[in-house]
Design a protein around this nucleic acid. Structure first.
Lengths: 136, 136
DNA sequence: ATAAACTGTATAGCAACTATAGAGTCAATC
DNA sequence: GATTGACTCTATAGTTGCTATACAGTTTAT
């Protein structure tokens, strides 16, 4: 059994994050030592790694909670998992599209000013004051 | 002179947002009527549109505050504006790269499970329990 | 006079942590 | 046995850019 500091090093996330996950019910309340310190076993390590992996894929804490729940009922159909992943992929792709469009607008705006001008002549500021650039 | 509700309709942002911008010092404290209502003129409309345009480009409120300050000193060099834009563009492009990588991983993961399996057989959950997918 | 619509301030909530304060616990050293 | 240092505990505030709510006051229309 290890204390929270060791667990934090093993899985590579901060002590506060672990306590946060406990409060958010992503991991069960840990056993406590006589002195009220949290105690963890190998199962806790695995679960935290699972969560960490999900987070690296930008899954939200509620989504992860749902996955963990599904994981606990192995006989259930996994359609829910698939639906969640599909929705998540859609969101990521939508965000990429948004940012790509944004990037074009920013580059266009940036081209409207070279250095060494005064603010008064600055094409960027002038353009920002005008009507928003069209999306084309 | 118009009240905050009218301004909100004219520029297309919520009343709370306008009050929020005032608190954050993006716009000056508005004049008040006898009954303590905020009163705005055309200049306020223009400034809010400027802010709205910047926000549509995902500039942060501190960045916008800085641009507004520069706008007020028209003789200054606009290098700062250019630097800010460059940094911002870099950030957006970095985020696009991150999300693109993420998207690949998610799609790979999604392919590991088709519908109608049980959770126990679900490739997604199995993969999430394993070591994080490599970036390649 | 009254009701509806608007405005005011203050406060909490979102997401997923991070940082801080102040107190208690534990192991090692003097 | 006292002290030091490293660790842990809880509770709370801060991050970002709003949004939503509660409750009170103002204005406008009927």
């Amino acid at each position: 059994m290890m204390k929270i500091g060791e667990l934090s090093k093993v899985v590579g996330c901060s002590v506060q994050t672990i306590r946060h996950y406990e409060k958010e019910q992503l991991i069960a309340s840990a056993e406590r030592s006589e002195g009220n310190f949290r105690l963890y076993d190998e199962a806790a390590v695995e679960q935290l790694l699972f969560i960490k992996h999900c987070r690296s894929l930008d899954l939200s804490l509620p989504e992860i909670r749902q996955l963990l729940a599904l994981n606990r009922s192995p006989g259930a159909q996994c359609d829910d998992v698939n639906r969640m992943m599909d929705r998540h992929i859609e969101q990521v792709e939508a965000r990429i599209q948004e940012l790509t469009k944004l990037n074009k607008q920013l580059r266009m705006l940036r081209r409207s000013c070279s250095n060494r001008r005064t603010v008064e002549q600055c094409g960027i500021l002038r353009n920002l004051s005008a009507t928003p650039v069209s999306s084309g």
